[in-house]
Design a protein around this nucleic acid. Structure first.
Lengths: 234, 234
DNA sequence: CGATTAATTGATACTTCTCAAATCCTGTGG
DNA sequence: CCACAGGATTTGAGAAGTATCAATTAATCG
């Protein structure tokens, strides 16, 4: 992690889609001047499970995974975050240690906003406070969905759904591939299964024409069938 | 559901442990006068997944389960709630439909607090607002734990952990049994497994002296061993 | 262009689910 | 209070679904 070129919040392209959309110009100015811009190389860890961060990151470019380590040290990916997303706020707001680690799936530029600034905004700007609450409550609903899926769906169903989630989260590159590079193991850590099971099932999906696979480049060819296989209703 | 005897928030024994602990006396008075006290018989549904409630329940006496329906109509219990707990706030705060249903595990008295009152408190009382945020963020961390457990632990491990969770949530009755009556199916819906698997494993636990079982009365005899079997670290 | 890591494939073992049948409770109405 | 109906629990057997281990091939990064 090293200091990056400073980016001004007032002129940030992502502002309207970030959690800071509810701040007025003087507040934005304050965030902008209290923050630090940092750079993480692919694979670097932004935040460590169990630690106590002193602020949050607002992602500017890049993609990250948020994961917990299970009993055998196996990582379980809880969700992804990308540019415009705030990460690390859960621990800060609940006053607990970090419940998950965050690492960069690709080179990432992020802005570190100190705890004091975040809390000041929450206390003085009801709009921002409500937006944050809305965000956490939405996440809580998503977590409930994931819990039900992990408990009740087969690996095959979950893989189909995960492919759809990845597509929804990161979209497609110019060639139509899912716009993120994940190892088979990472996909397995999202699905909650063994790497080999992901490989076999992906291969089945390929044979059935649902996806095209060229190494880590995966194309979602048949959304409807994946929805059907994954029993995705929402 | 029928009207019950009105309970005044100002004199509610549970106030200090509820989310309303941060309200001042005039605010408490307002909550008290805007609310409605209702009674639910065992098995009744307080709130329906997919619906749009116009307020939250503050549980006064009784126990409830919060669950989602999976693909085959099988219910997945996300968590429990008991007296002093607020339920239904997630959907209200995120502005979404209810992501889960809530039903009474035993006869339950609850107070229905209208949405307008809740939002007024959030907007005018920063302490309350922060407490709510703290609550949702804590729940979010718990959800992450559950996700990891479901994805990585065996049924045996999860059952051990669930028994510990039930004990922590509801405590013991005067005979030392877990102070809640759950069917084997409900335990299975919490663990995320088949009813028969719970029965077989509970029977194993009994043979090993970890628990005592008399119908639905279960006693946790050996906490340490359950912790070990369940790989519970927190 | 190597060295290392990732991906793939096959064989096998194990966990867990499903289905069926036989008690056993529990709540309810007489 | 008792008997009964219907649901809950238990047990067994067999079938799936997944994980694990090992060995090979492919891909990626410096």
């Amino acid at each position: 992690m090293k200091q990056g070129a400073p980016i001004s919040c007032e002129f940030c392209q992502l502002r309207d889609q970030s959690s800071f959309k509810g701040l007025d110009s003087s507040e934005l100015h304050e965030v902008s001047h209290s923050k630090t811009c940092v750079f993480f190389k692919k694979g670097q860890v932004l935040m460590h499970e169990g630690s106590r961060p002193n602020g949050v990151y607002c992602l500017h470019t890049g993609k990250t995974k948020i994961y917990r380590l299970g009993t055998e040290g196996k990582e379980q990916i809880i969700r992804f975050a990308k540019d415009g997303d705030l990460i690390g706020y859960r621990s800060l707001l609940s006053g607990e240690n970090l419940s998950a680690s965050i690492s960069a799936l690709e080179d990432t530029h992020a802005c570190f906003v100190p705890k004091s600034t975040l809390f000041k905004m929450i206390e003085t700007n009801p709009r921002f406070s409500l937006d944050m609450m809305k965000l956490t409550c939405h996440e809580l609903g998503e977590a409930g969905k994931l819990i039900t899926n992990l408990a009740q769906k087969t690996v095959r169903e979950r893989l189909a759904e995960v492919l759809l989630i990845i597509h929804r989260t990161f979209g497609e590159d110019e060639e139509g591939n899912l716009d993120v590079s994940l190892t088979r193991e990472e996909i397995a850590n999202m699905v909650g299964t063994a790497t080999e099971s992901v490989i076999r099932l992906l291969s089945e999906f390929k044979d059935d024409g649902l996806v095209t696979i060229k190494g880590r480049k995966i194309t979602r060819n048949d959304r409807a069938s994946l929805v059907k296989i994954g029993n995705v209703y929402d």
